[in-house]
């Protein structure tokens, strides 16, 4: 109930701050970008449209998650709006979770609308969509759950600018964790290899949620994989959120 109240308020704040204008940019980028590139391609208009849709969802979603997420708690502390809230009979973690879920609701709305726009656009162009496109869109959203959780954690710890830089680096790097496993064969059996393996499992692996290539080329992805990736995202977000709650619990405001 209290979590819902905070979440609802966070959602309303973001909406009244016109964060959803990002949808407009999404539409412009997708339509202009895919149109401009589509006409010189070899029978690839629809693939390019799908690529643009999914990549724009990932990028714009991440932008919302990073910029709104990293200032989520910090802004409340900085503007002292928090004083009257924390002094209410509620746990601090309820506040953190409320903020998180408020932003997640916003992202759900944003990505849901983007998916709907993409679907409509692709249908208008005469294409058809397979299940894998929606799997890719869902995993895109799940990726943003992890990114948002990380942003919330950092917003409890640092200033929004530093937080945004860190989350952005993690976003880029999170897609590249595969390099830790793709070591050249001369590392086989060495300590370094095991060390990198440990790191591989510690850092968030955002490439798990990247089905763009499969979605655009209609390569089916098993439901088992989707389920593993969803479970992974949920568990990792939970880790980050618990850490965010702990960090916020002991904070002097």
């Amino acid at each position: 109930m209290r979590v819902l109240a905070v979440a609802g308020n966070t959602f309303r704040e973001a909406v009244r701050d016109k964060v959803l204008y990002v949808l407009l940019f999404f539409a412009i980028i997708v339509i202009l970008g895919s149109r401009a590139l589509g006409w010189i391609s070899v029978g690839q208009d629809l693939k390019i449209v799908k690529d643009f849709c999914l990549a724009s969802m990932s990028v714009f979603g991440a932008l919302i998650a990073i910029f709104v997420g990293t200032s989520l708690l910090y802004k409340e502390i900085d503007k002292k709006t928090l004083y009257t809230i924390i002094s209410q009979p509620m746990h601090r973690y309820e506040f953190v979770l409320g903020k998180y879920f408020g932003l997640v609701a916003l992202l759900a709305l944003a990505l849901g609308s983007m998916s709907a726009l993409s679907t409509a656009y692709i249908f208008v162009l005469g294409g058809k969509l397979n299940l894998v496109f929606f799997q890719a869109a869902l995993l895109n959203f799940w990726k943003l759950l992890v990114v948002t959780a990380l942003a919330v954690l950092l917003s409890a710890l640092t200033s929004p600018i530093l937080g945004a830089i860190i989350v952005f680096c993690c976003f880029v790097f999170g897609h590249a964790t595969g390099v830790f496993l793709d070591l050249p064969p001369q590392f086989n059996g060495t300590f370094t290899k095991h060390f990198f393996e440990v790191i591989y499992y510690c850092v968030p692996n955002l490439d798990n949620f990247n089905l763009h290539s499969e979605a655009a080329n209609d390569i089916p992805v098993s439901l088992a994989y989707t389920a593993w990736a969803l479970a992974y995202g949920t568990a990792y977000s939970a880790v980050l959120l618990i850490m965010a709650c702990l960090a916020f619990e002991g904070k002097d405001l």
Binding site: R12, Y83, S87
Partner: peptide, 13 residues
């Protein structure tokens, strides 16, 4: 019930 010095609220409410 607590009222901080210079109370801040969500400006958009």
């Amino acid at each position: 019930g607590y009222m901080p010095e210079q109370p801040y609220f969500y400006e958009y409410l």
